[in-house]
Design a protein around this nucleic acid. Structure first.
Length: 938
RNA sequence: GGGCGCGUAGCUCAGCGGAAGAGCACUACCUUGACAUGGUAGGGGUCACAGGUUCGAUCCCUGUCGCGCCCA
């Protein structure tokens, strides 16, 4: 028995458990050994994360694909997992320590701290996974992975060492984006350019040996202490004469050269810029071009470091310099204020302009990023990008929508070295060890690094010419190389190697996700079967972070693209189109929505709105509407049940005799094609719309209504057939909707199995419909005719204010045989009565007096409404219709009268136009007749 | 500055060379045995603007004006 109302909360939990119990989401089962594989890797959410609307959309779309392909018989692997989110997770645990007033991470030390992080992960790391299950995600949870787990860590080590040995990973001292709050380097992509209203300070630098000044404009006066030059454009007419002279750096007294460089834009500011290579990316390049040594004046915490700094070692001590050195340890923003005010005091501040410019901010810490000169590890992204570019150009991987390929190309073509080291503890520690003399050993294990060190130091002579006597005791040489002879043991006393403290960017491990999750570097069945994956579903904001890097790593290590299709979806916004954000307070919590309306309603809403290339505006109202759709489906199923329309074993609608049943079979086949094709093309909104239309506007509005006379009529073959067809079509509906609304459809699949033949499987594993030979143009034409006629009658009834319960006669004026037959068929079963409140049909030669006449499909009908109708109003109504018909005829005539049209337009279009004309002309004729009758009837 | 995209019904958006569509909202009527989380009917659009290509343009091209987003 189907309950009166659908209770999502209760059903969803139960159904999900059933799926898991049945192992329905498992990939690689023996039953599907012969099936074609279909695989998707989940974009791993942060282990710290909880489900937001973006996840809800992303995973709904993946689940639609996974369920669709599973039903199509493929061996589906939807690979789940989470990433370790280096900075985010470390921050979470550090915050927790602070809240509990426990010792901070530095006090407790690395090992202890990492224990705490793992403990946190064990406790809270499963949140988002549980939430994905509530959404209905059909991932193979038995294969869940984590970027820090053993296998994936092994993959990271292997990749790092391999790339290092190939020269594609290297260590370099250059400017990086430094986060002075988190005290780590970050990659370009983790930097947000934020437009801020700042100032442009114009500072006068005295020119050596004159009373002239050169005025530089800067947004960062505090970095001037690290200036090494002033640059002007070599063709700057006003200033180029100063090139080659020297300026006196205010507050320091150092002489710095005035150089000519294109970088100084004559139009900008004063045309002269200070050059501070240690604190600005552009200046760094200028410095390099002119052989200037960078002067760094900031600490890792972005505080001034001056006293122990070489830039003033050769300078004469002046009161100014002394005063400056007193600023030691001052924060960068305080320093800015003080420097500005000191310059002002000295009359060296020419002016201050308001100035809007972009300032880099850390996307995690939200503090201003410092370009900072340090040693970091880099990936030679440019080299790795080449095959990745080629693969997309050659169509081995396709972006959907296609225009994202342009974004991908543009970024890949201008790709910069990727800084992968992070000064954090939580993450994959870089497998590099350093021995005496800063010699580096990169290896997958410490043992190997030791071996390398041993080899190196045993053969490398030291400064004094003697062989170095290494000592590996500290790193456990006994465990590492137990077979060492005592002679070597003797020899190696004194050497120790120390591991690089830094960890890798989380995205480094994420880049391996499509194959590391499948067991690589081991040679697993999974890698062979499921790589390359079939599709990747993700947001555009992550193309650079993730998609591009997976392409690079996948191609380098597997020699094959990681995925065939990349479907890029857009953002979910609030109903006003604003980005959801905690600070704005407009966040819609998907779990709250699921609680209130059910997961299916949320999923269907997201799918219906997920048009390619458009952000989604989500309102609770729209979710409610789709919840109503679920209710509609539920009630249709109840109708079928009430009417004894049970499933019949082996029923094939192909053999249906009733027009109505042949029609719904035809429509089912049509809807199935539409949904299938749309999902195949990632047109989720079209697929959902087609299903919606079919269920509501075809099955419920017309099929169910028209089946009522048959189902409530006398027993017999027609009734039996209709029952069987109604149940059959409902089954097909459940299948078509299952990828979108898995819970309610599975529940109905279960309840409708209580009677009739046994189900072979859960719906989740049922075969996707594929219909041949159900197309029936005759049935379509007849039901179309019926719908048009009923709609016309209803329309007139409302227009004429006929009371709802009043029964009318339907007169057919000189009907064709076809019309007569059709009308009789539907009248006999009482369809006109039920759907249009028609008592009966009669054939007449002319409409009776005072009747309303309807022209439908070139037949004229009349509704006798003697005394009810206003003849004048009716004349106006008919004339309006006539005008419409005439306008149609005129439009077609214009086309057909145009010789160019007839000469150029394709045959079928011309035929179509001619048919249209015929139809309109027939309609016009009938209306003229109707008008005549109206007049004569008066 | 470079790139991508968007201006279609009151709102949110499909459609993108052959007679303007959906959902919601709105109006009127309807407690009919699946469903008021419903039914029936209806109103509402020079498809941003200006040119061009075409037999034919909401759709293709060019420009203008608005509005987003990404990258410098």
């Amino acid at each position: 028995m189907i309950d009166k109302t659908y209770q999502p909360a209760e059903v969803e939990t139960r159904i999900y458990a059933e799926w898991e119990q049945a192992g329905a989401f498992r990939a690689g089962t023996p039953e599907r050994a012969a099936a074609a594989p279909y695989s998707i890797v989940i974009p791993p959410p942060n282990v710290t994360g909880s489900l937001h609307m973006g996840h809800a959309l992303n995973n709904t779309l993946q689940d639609i694909l996974a369920r669709f392909e599973r039903m199509r018989g493929r061996d589906v692997l939807w690979q789940p997992g989470t990433d370790h989110a280096g900075i985010a997770t470390q921050m979470v645990v550090e915050r927790q320590l602070m809240e509990r007033q426990e010792p901070g991470r530095r006090e407790m030390g690395r090992a202890k701290f990492l224990e705490r992080v793992w403990a946190w992960k064990a406790e809270s790391g499963g949140t988002i996974t549980r939430q994905l299950k509530r959404l209905g995600a059909s991932c193979d949870w038995s294969r869940e992975r984590f970027t820090m787990d053993e296998g994936l860590s092994r993959a990271v080590l292997k990749v790092f060492v391999a790339l290092y040995n190939e020269g594609l990973i290297y260590k370099d001292k250059r400017l990086v984006n430094w986060d002075p709050k988190l005290l780590t380097a970050i990659s370009d992509l983790e930097v947000q350019q934020v437009e801020v209203r700042g100032h442009l300070w114009h500072i006068k630098y005295p020119i050596e040996g004159s009373d002239e000044f050169i005025t530089v404009a800067t947004t960062r006066p505090e970095t001037m202490l690290g200036d090494v030059a002033v640059a002007v454009h070599p063709e700057n007419e006003k200033l180029k004469h100063l090139i080659g002279r020297k300026a006196v750096l205010p507050l320091v007294g150092k002489l710095i050269p005035i150089i000519g460089d294109d970088y100084a834009d004559p139009e900008k500011g004063t045309g002269a810029v200070k050059i501070t290579p240690a604190h600005d990316f552009n200046d760094f390049e200028v410095g390099k071009r002119h052989g200037l040594t960078p002067v760094s004046v900031l600490t890792i915490e972005a505080k001034l470091t001056l006293t122990d700094n070489s830039f003033h070692s050769n300078l004469q001590r002046s009161p100014d310099l002394e005063e400056t050195l007193k600023m030691e340890g001052m924060d960068r923003f305080a320093a800015r204020k003080m420097i500005v005010s000191r310059l002002e005091e000295k009359g060296l501040l020419d002016k201050i302009e308001p100035h809007t410019h972009v300032v880099p901010h850390g996307d995690r810490s939200n503090v201003v990023i410092e370009p900072y000169l340090t040693d970091q590890w880099y990936v030679d992204a440019k080299t790795l990008a080449q095959p990745a570019l080629k693969a997309v150009r050659e169509g081995k991987t396709t972006f959907v929508p296609k225009n994202w390929e342009k974004t991908y190309f543009e970024w890949m073509e201008n790709i910069q070295p990727w800084c992968i080291s992070r000064q954090l503890w939580w993450g994959h520690q870089i497998p590099a060890w350093y021995g005496p003399g800063e010699k580096r050993f990169v290896a997958e294990t410490e043992a190997e690094a030791c071996a390398q060190a041993l080899k190196f130091y045993r053969t490398a002579p030291m400064e004094d010419g003697k062989p170095y006597a290494p000592n590996l005791r500290e790193v456990g040489i006994d465990a590492v190389m137990p077979a060492l002879s005592s002679a070597i043991r003797e020899e190696i006393t004194g050497l120790s190697i120390k591991r690089d403290e830094d960890v890798l960017d989380t995205w480094f491990s994420s880049a391996l996700w499509p194959f590391s999750t499948l067991g690589w570097p081991d040679d697993t069945r999974e890698v062979a079967r499921f790589y390359p994956t079939s599709a990747l579903v993700t947001g555009f904001d992550i193309i650079f972070f993730w998609v591009a890097r997976m392409m690079m790593m996948g191609l380098h290590f597997r020699k094959e693209v990681p995925f065939r299709d990349v479907y890029i979806h857009r953002l979910v916004r609030d109903e006003k189109g604003a980005k959801m954000s905690k600070s704005k307070g407009n966040v819609i919590d998907p779990l709250g929505i699921i609680d209130e309306y059910g997961a299916d309603a949320l999923r269907f809403t997201l799918a219906r709105e997920a048009a390619q290339g458009h952000d989604i505006r989500l309102s609770p109202q729209s979710v409610e509407n789709n919840r109503n759709f679920a209710t509609k489906l539920w009630n249709a199923a109840r109708f079928v049940e009430f009417n004894g329309a049970g499933r019949v074993a082996g029923f094939n609608p192909n053999g249906a005799r009733e027009t109505l049943n042949r029609w719904i079979a035809h429509e089912t086949a049509k809807a199935t094609r539409e949904v299938t094709e749309a999902i195949e093309q990632y047109r989720f909104n079209e697929a959902a719309a087609a299903a919606y239309r079919f269920v509501w506007n075809v099955y419920c509005d017309w099929y169910v209504e028209l089946s009522k006379p048959l189902l409530t009529g006398p027993d017999g073959p027609a009734k039996d057939e209709t029952r069987a067809t109604a149940a059959w079509a409902l089954d097909e509906i459940l299948k078509l909707l299952h990828p979108f609304m898995p819970f309610i459809t599975e529940e109905l699949w279960r309840v409708t199995a209580e009677t009739g033949p046994r189900r072979d499987s859960l719906l989740v594993l049922a075969p996707w419909p594929k219909h041949d030979g159900l197309d029936d143009p005759d049935a379509e034409a007849e039901i179309g005719w019926f719908i048009d006629l009923v709609t016309a009658i209803r329309s007139v009834r409302v227009e004429m204010n006929v009371p709802g319960n009043a029964l009318l006669n339907l007169e057919m004026i000189n009907p064709s045989n076809e019309t007569l037959e059709r009308a009789q068929r539907w009248d006999e079963v009482g369809a006109f009565n039920r759907l249009a409140r028609i008592a009966g049909t009669t054939t007449v030669r002319a409409a009776s007096k005072g009747s309303i006449q309807l022209v439908v499909s070139n037949s004229t009908f009349a509704l006798p409404l003697f005394g009810v109708i206003d003849v004048e109003a009716e004349r106006v109504r008919l004339e309006k219709e006539m005008q419409k018909a005439e306008a149609d005829i005129k439009r077609v005539d214009q086309k057909l009268g145009n010789p160019n049209f007839v000469a150029n337009a394709p045959e079928e279009i011309i035929e179509g136009e001619k048919e249209k004309r015929e139809e309109a002309e027939g309609r016009r004729r009938k209306i003229v007749e109707a008008l005549d009758r109206l007049k004569s009837a008066q």
